[in-house]
Design a protein around this nucleic acid. Structure first.
Length: 435
RNA sequence: GGCGGAUUGCCCGAGUGGUCAAUGGGAGCGGACUGUAAAUCCGUCGGCUUAGCCUACGAAGGUUCGAACCCUUCAUCCGCCA
């Protein structure tokens, strides 16, 4: 997997100060001590990622980029894939009937996620070279008895019960032993990473605070190490209270281009609320303080220009998919939302721009546009007809007037593409294959 | 277990025999405006082979020329009494 070139990386002298300014610090253990250690040498920092899906999403970029921030500041990052913790799963799940993943499914996911994590970090032989780990490596060989005796005995149940995450659950119906054990596994990770890589700091979401400090305790009890650090990020939500990285439709914005096309990512960033643009720039890019604050000012003065959103979109696409992708996506956006120069787009760009749009294959004689819309967008025929009647249906960006219209030979872009649209955002690609 | 009230479209909520595919509000969708925004305004909002037809007012039966509306049974929910 190729390492993408990071578009903008502002130099940072004091990581903690930078993180603080970005709004990335919720809690830390002894802040002064952490700062001292960071100033006096290479600190190894880890963050864990459970394989809850086939891809990381924009939200998981926050801790991942934080690792990168530490690396840029001269420290060593460890990205830990939760092959074991993901196996246990977090039984907190919203729906009851979430199917249990098979070991094969999990390991497939771990492979995908590891590859994604690797793209954001530098792996070299230097002391700051990143490390990719999987907690299944040390958890799988561990027998239940060993686990209970060596790890479990360090966890006083009364203390676990007192933890916020557990007590909250006890009030709302209880939790399983498995769920309680999750904390032990995560704590063991910290100990193992200390043993293997002298890792002395763990970062994660603020909901992980309990688990992280439990790891610190275990490190002290098993290894007598007391100088390790914990740092958490605030649970970041946008101004509407949504978790970061949720598209307006509610779905996750994924890193994987198969799941969220670069074009969709661009659109997501461009549509970020004015109030959130600055926040996103701080959390999800390496753009420096001066520039971000200038963009904030720009947003306040000339909100319609959406300079901050544009910058965010460019940074994100370049960060996740590479710079060349950004250029293409920009062209496609302009054509699809602009005056309609669809004919000018070359075929690969057109395809890329429309990658996330629903598509429909047609062979032989082409049915009326209304039928194509209904079929491709999952509308009823009445709905499709209504769309035309209301002037909300477009063929290659041109408004349709006739309910019975059938695409003509000249409508086919590059000989085999049709771009249909209902309203501003519901695009449908019709592709014709010669029978 | 007894008595009373409820059940209407995605949600809330009118409607008590024909003029009901069903007032109104919200959500959604389309248009105008705009910044691919918010707010606002206009339109639309069961389906289809669309001057018409079909299916629908918790479910199933019944009365009637005709039922969301009347009757019977069932289901679910809410009160009151045991």
């Amino acid at each position: 997997m190729l390492r993408v070139s990071l578009p903008t990386v502002a130099p940072v002298t004091d990581v903690l100060a930078d993180l603080e300014w970005r709004g990335l610090i919720a809690q830390t253990t002894d802040r002064e001590a952490f700062a001292r250690d960071l100033a006096s040498g290479v600190v190894t920092v880890y963050a864990g990622f459970d394989p809850t899906a086939d891809s990381l999403h924009v939200g998981s970029l926050v801790p991942l980029l934080a690792l990168r921030r530490f690396q840029l500041a001269g420290h060593r990052p460890i990205a830990l894939a939760g092959g074991a913790t993901g196996f246990i799963g977090d039984p907190t799940g919203r729906t009851t009937d979430r199917p249990m993943m098979t070991p094969a499914e999990i390991s497939a996911r771990v492979v995908l996620i590891k590859a994604q994590m690797a793209r954001f970090l530098d792996f070299d032989d230097s002391p700051t070279g990143a490390i990719l780990a999987d907690n299944l490596d040390w958890t799988a060989p561990l027998s239940a008895l060993d686990f209970l005796r060596d790890v479990g005995r360090h966890f006083p149940v009364n203390q676990m019960l007192a933890r916020e995450s557990v007590s909250a659950r006890l009030e709302s119906g209880g939790l399983s032993f498995t769920e309680m054990s999750y904390q032990l596994l995560q704590s063991l990770d910290f100990v193992e990473l200390w043993r293997r890589h002298a890792c002395t700091a763990q970062i994660g979401g603020n909901d992980q605070w309990g688990n992280i400090t439990a790891g610190l305790d275990l490190l002290r009890r098993m290894e007598g190490v007391s100088g390790a650090h914990a740092m958490t990020f605030p649970l970041v939500t946008d101004s509407a209270g949504q978790k970061i990285g949720k598209s307006t439709g509610g779905g996750n914005v994924w890193i994987d281009p198969q799941l969220t096309s670069p074009y969709a990512l661009w659109q997501f960033a461009l549509n970020v609320d004015d109030k959130d643009a600055g926040t996103y720039l701080r959390l999800l890019t390496f753009v420096g303080r001066e520039e971000v604050e200038a963009l904030d000012a720009e947003t306040a003065e000339r909100p319609h220009a959406r300079t901050a959103q544009r910058r965010l979109a460019a940074e994100l696409v370049a960060l996740i998919h590479g710079e060349s992708e950004g250029v293409k996506v920009q062209a496609a956006s302009a054509a699809l939302f602009g005056s309609g120069a669809l004919e000018d787009l070359d075929e690969p760009t057109l395809r890329a721009a429309l990658a996330e749009a629903p598509s429909l294959q047609v062979t032989g004689e082409c049915p009326p546009v209304v039928d194509l819309l209904a079929e491709g967008l999952g509308l009823s025929k009445s709905d499709a007809r209504r769309a035309v009647k209301e002037g909300g249906a477009y063929l290659n960006n041109a408004k349709l007037a006739d309910e019975a219209a059938v695409p003509s030979e000249t409508d086919w872009l590059h000989g085999h593409f049709l771009v249909l649209r209902k309203g501003k955002r519901n695009t449908l690609v019709v592709e014709r294959t010669q029978a």
